[in-house]
Design a binder for these strands. Structure first.
Lengths: 208, 208
DNA sequence: TAGATTGTTAATCGATTAACAATC
DNA sequence: TAGATTGTTAATCGATTAACAATC
């Protein structure tokens, strides 16, 4: 039996399904059809059914999907059934805002380390985390066995810090730096750059 | 002559090309081949040539693309040849960090308005912007003729604030709220949710 | 039971890649 | 000129959609 590979794009949609299902559970719903879920998400029923079918049959003909057990199944598929510790590099406005962001602990993400080069910041606290000098980046990441890093440094330092994180054993990087990073195939990278997203929008808004 | 429609996914890549080209220009390069650009971006030469060909022929056989004129062409295509004013709703950690973000003015984005409901925040300044009460959202957005809004409010208020922005004439929304928004077809929406991106990553990192 | 909805297959659609003539 | 590289066409690949038998 060859294990069928699930397309990346399907994996990327699962967290959105989960987010919506959690909201529905909060609203007191117990069951949802692919059609209703699709409408809330702005996608199609067929796509949701197809995506879920990569992992098994979670629904019941006639009634749809039991919300609570589908949530549990998706959490297990995505490895969300534990707390993931994260290291943040860069304690500027963004790094500090991320460290304080309530949405992380609420969804199983714990910011454990925060680094900066600025001696005025090193030693100060952001919430319960003390900012450490980047000199200790490798040592601390290894010591805590952290696998996920967040880059919140200026573009010029992003590649260097990414390299150091990878060296220290980081396997996934979420970068807020406005540059393309060159990373080993084995490292999973995600990028957030609001300017790129706004510029995409400007193409469509420009037709006045 | 029927104007061929350019796929959304092509448009979404253009800002990344532009970002890389700007960096190369800064490095003093004058010309770049699709192959070299592709390597820096982690994509393929064929894709870059195909994407650019939707808009015309910008390169020269034998030598590649003149960086400076390709930058100018992309800026014009994306309507970046002017300053875009933006309204930010929500002046929490994130909203304030975005308002101070240097990367916006540097790339033609001017945060002009900042709103919140918190009376302790209203009237205070973030950089040169005074936080205004959301009661004035519609009036101010209309007065300045602003077309782009950024949502930096908690999930519970996101849909409501999105509706009000649309009502006020906003045509593009960049949302940092962790919910799916339901918006008219005519409004261009972009979402940023680091949790969703980290959860996608966790699927791949989980195989230990 | 009748109606609703799943899981899955096959058809369609669209995007990426390969290849190469044109040409700088 | 010879080598390099574009712009474009055709081939391939993969993702989405439609359709429907199975079944709750």
């Amino acid at each position: 039996m060859t294990k069928e590979v699930v397309p990346d794009i399907v994996i990327a949609r699962l967290p959105r399904y989960l987010q919506c299902l959690n909201l529905m559970a909060k609203e007191g719903l117990h069951t949802v059809s692919s059609g209703v879920l699709a409408e809330r998400l702005g996608t199609t029923a067929a796509q949701i059914r197809k995506d879920l079918s990569y992992f098994g049959g979670f629904g019941k003909q006639g009634s749809g999907y039991p919300i609570y057990s589908l949530i549990e199944a998706l959490q297990e598929i995505l490895n969300l059934d534990r707390i993931w510790q994260v290291a943040v590099v860069g304690a500027g406005d963004l790094g500090r805002a991320l460290t304080r962001y309530q949405g992380f602990p609420r969804r199983g993400i714990e910011i454990k380390l925060l680094f900066d080069v600025d001696p005025k910041l090193v030693g100060t606290k952001v919430g319960s985390i003390t900012i450490q000098h980047v000199d200790y980046l490798e040592k601390e990441i290894q010591h805590h066995g952290i696998k996920i890093g967040v880059l919140a440094v200026p573009a010029e330092y992003a590649q260097l810090m990414a390299d150091r994180m990878v060296e220290a054993g980081i396997e996934g990087i979420l970068s807020y730096a406005p540059v393309s990073l060159i990373l080993p195939e084995s490292v999973h990278a995600q990028h957030i750059d609001p300017v790129l997203q706004l510029q995409t929008m400007m193409y469509y808004l420009g037709e006045d």
